[in-house]
């Protein structure tokens, strides 16, 4: 099962807020000039930041609370930049019901405008419930 592809971009402000939370003060994340000077094409995204793209994606399934993240893998395939257009989707790689809880693996994939794979993020989740949207 897979969501449709949704378009989105990450803003400079999101990068700055994320880096503020992470405690990173490197100028490349805050200043376009500093990033260009270091050879980047713009303000780069930290490696796990693309996971916030979930907020832009409507999945054809829902999880009931409580939802717990037990393992997370982020694979940046290309450097991604703030204020560039991307498209992404979430795939449900597996789901099973054991001992009263749902165990799921979801994969977020993000491509750039040239259709290059830029990022995939694999989340191992435990949820109180799992529903396909047409059965909710």
């Amino acid at each position: 099962m897979k969501s449709e592809y949704f378009s989105f971009h990450f803003t400079k402000e999101e990068v700055q807020r994320y880096c503020g939370l992470a405690g990173v003060k490197k100028a490349i994340y805050y200043s376009l000039e500093a990033a260009l000077e270091e050879g980047f094409e713009g303000i780069p995204l930290p490696p796990a930041l693309p996971m916030i793209a979930y907020r832009h994606i409507e999945k054809p399934w829902q999880l009931a609370e409580p939802v717990i993240l037990r393992k997370q893998e982020c694979r940046p395939h290309r450097i991604m930049y703030a204020d560039r257009a991307y498209v992404g989707a979430v795939k449900l790689r597996s789901h099973s019901f054991r001992q009263g809880r749902w165990f799921l693996i979801e994969e977020l994939v993000i491509f750039d405008q040239e259709n290059h794979l830029c990022f995939n993020g694999i989340s191992h989740l435990i949820a109180g419930g799992f529903f396909e949207n047409n059965t909710v």
């Binding site: 994320y18 880096c19 939370l21 992470a22 405690g23 990173v24 003060k25 490197k26 930290p46 490696p47 796990a48 930041l49 996971m51 916030i52 993240l69 037990r70 997370q72 982020c74």
Partner: peptide, 15 residues
Amino acid sequence: HGMLTMAKVWGILAN
């Protein structure tokens, strides 16, 4: 959030 912990860990590594 697990992803917040991940951000903090990355922050330390990046620094």
